[in-house]
């Protein structure tokens, strides 16, 4: 009944205002993305002279063809997929085990270890001491540096711990103990199957973070065969920008336009996977923030 009366409520001036406002916001958000997509299919000269606004002009695949000449993009793609998969698995293991243990009231030393985790959110050794440590441990210029050292995250631990505390009843452990079940088996066979929600949330957070960041790779990976996609994109999109802009004359102009066209294409190519996956998993993301926002 309530649903029905709501649906047939008359549109007020206020509702109209909300519609207009939200439409404007949508345009502001979507247009830059849309523009990049149509520019990637357009004749670069038309883009450079401002003829491309709503539809691609002089339809072309040149930008995408140009991408195939850059084998390092595909190496980067492969590396990023490996780092994202590996990093997500390791990150899940590390953060879920820590969160599970810290959620247990009968774990002695819980407060102390929890404090150790929380401190890292507000204080850290900083760039150079961390760099020196990574080097001494032998992870410098080693692809494992992308997966192992920084997989532990106090924030993720806190979120998962809140979940365990609120969704796994304590009686379950009491019962399992009576049945002779040890802690590790209890965690693997009983707790994890009940925690699909938090597992998917953390997996998505970690995976998106891994896919998108370039900082650790910039600092710790020298060999370009190990570079992830984002670092290679940085070279194509940003570092080279200055060099091509320097040339003058007809040939330089054409080269500049072609490289700009390739930039539009590389943006599209590199962003498609995340854009396609994201709407499918969106509801998990929201859930994660809801879990995290419950103070624990």
């Amino acid at each position: 009944m309530i649903e029905k009366s709501k649906r047939f409520r008359k549109l007020t001036k206020f509702d109209l205002l909300v519609y207009v406002l939200t439409l404007l916001i949508l345009i502001v958000i979507l247009y830059p993305i849309y523009f990049v997509v149509i520019a990637s299919f357009s004749d670069p000269t038309a883009v450079a002279s401002g003829k491309v606004w709503l539809l691609p002009q002089g339809f072309t695949f040149d930008g995408y063809m140009e991408l195939f000449r850059h084998s390092n993009i595909w190496i980067g793609y492969r590396n990023t997929i490996l780092y994202t998969a590996g990093g997500t698995l390791v990150g899940l293991f590390i953060n879920l085990t820590a969160a599970f243990v810290l959620s247990r009231k009968d774990f002695m030393g819980r407060k102390f270890i929890m404090t150790l985790f929380v401190i890292t959110m507000f204080f850290n050794g900083g760039l150079i001491p961390t760099f020196v440590t990574v080097k001494q441990v032998g992870l410098y210029d080693n692809p494992l540096v992308m997966i192992i050292p920084f997989s532990v995250s106090a924030f993720n631990v806190i979120v998962a711990r809140t979940f365990f505390k609120s969704s796994i009843p304590e009686e379950l452990w009491e019962q399992a103990k009576i049945d002779g079940c040890g802690n590790i088996r209890y965690f693997v066979q009983i707790v994890l199957p009940l925690s699909k929600a938090i597992i998917s949330v953390l997996a998505l957070w970690i995976a998106v973070g891994m896919w998108n960041s370039y900082f650790n790779a910039l600092i710790y990976l020298k060999d370009s065969n190990y570079h992830p996609l984002q670092l290679i994109l940085r070279n194509i999109l940003i570092t080279n920008n200055m060099q091509t802009a320097l040339g003058t004359g007809e040939a330089a102009q054409i080269a500049l336009r072609l490289s700009n066209l390739m930039r539009y294409s590389v943006i599209v190519i590199s962003t498609i996977p995340i854009m396609c996956i994201y709407p499918l998993v969106q509801k998990h993301f929201n859930k994660g923030i809801m879990i995290g926002s419950v103070k624990g």
Partner: peptide, 10 residues
């Protein structure tokens, strides 16, 4: 969900 590199590129 767009990476920083791509946003700055845009």
């Amino acid at each position: 969900f767009i990476s920083v590199v791509v946003v700055v590129g845009m």
